[in-house]
């Protein structure tokens, strides 16, 4: 049976020995890729344009207007339910402004995944907040939490993300810097750019293979 500790010792020993090559003459030469930060308006514009290009529906709204718009959208599409996280600001706003008689019912995550699994796989959609957006590469940044578990954004066929206009960063680099990722990483952090897709059949882009088939983003101010 394999012994991890012994393997470790041998691997590291070989690697340390190998450092004789060029180690003394080695000069760190790392170059850095910088992208100049843009104005907020330019960020929103680029974010919208590029998210749309990866088949995301992007809407710009004020305050909690997005809740009404979302309700209209999901009702039109015949969604039966929508998973949300009432303890988060996004979830709170959603619950407070959702029509009581809507044909689409709000549901919440109960217990842990082991208990909730079947129900989760039957959800039509989920609404989450996010830490921000990235304009240059077109993505939303999610840090799942106790209230907003990770699978909310991957299992249901529809994922709705609410992003604050002020938290759209120009670049991934800028987001990492501003959010101080080198200091603390969450258990799971995610960039999401569009609905799930594959090109494994003749390299033709097809959406919705395992994860959400639709991604809707509301930019709020």
């Amino acid at each position: 049976m394999s012994n991890s500790a012994e393997n470790r010792e041998r691997i590291l020993e070989r690697l340390y020995n190998a450092q004789q090559y060029g180690r003394d003459a080695y000069i760190p030469q790392k170059k850095v890729w910088n992208i100049k930060n843009q104005s907020k308006e330019k960020n929103i514009e680029e974010f919208t344009e590029r998210m749309t290009a990866v088949r995301t529906e992007v809407f710009r709204t004020k305050g909690t207007e997005w809740v009404g718009e979302l309700q209209k959208l999901v009702e039109e599409r015949g969604q039966k339910n929508l998973l949300h996280a009432p303890a988060t600001p996004t979830g709170k706003a959603l619950a407070a402004n959702w029509g009581k008689d809507s044909s689409c019912k709000l549901v919440t995550w109960k217990e842990s995944i082991e208990e909730f699994k079947d129900e989760l796989f039957d959800c039509d959609g989920a609404v989450t907040g996010c830490l921000g957006g990235i304009a240059e590469s077109a993505a939303v940044i999610l840090w799942p939490t106790e209230e907003e578990p990770r699978l909310m954004s991957i299992v249901p066929p529809l994922h709705v993300v609410v992003v604050e206009a002020d938290s759209i960063y120009t670049s991934f680099q800028d987001a990492i810097k501003k959010l101080k990722w080198n200091k603390e990483m969450p258990t799971n952090a995610l960039l999401i750019s569009g609905p799930s897709k594959t090109a494994d059949i003749e390299l033709i882009l097809q959406f919705g293979v395992h994860g959400p088939t639709d991604l809707i983003v509301f930019i709020t101010e």
Binding site: W109, P149, L191, P195
Partner: peptide, 24 residues
């Protein structure tokens, strides 16, 4: 790899489910 600026998902995992977390 695919001629994308970014993939749909970039998943950064820094550990198992923590106490209080409900999945993972």
């Amino acid at each position: 790899a695919t001629g994308q600026r970014i993939t749909t998902y970039f998943n950064m995992i820094s550990g198992p489910r923590k106490k209080g977390e409900r999945d993972g």
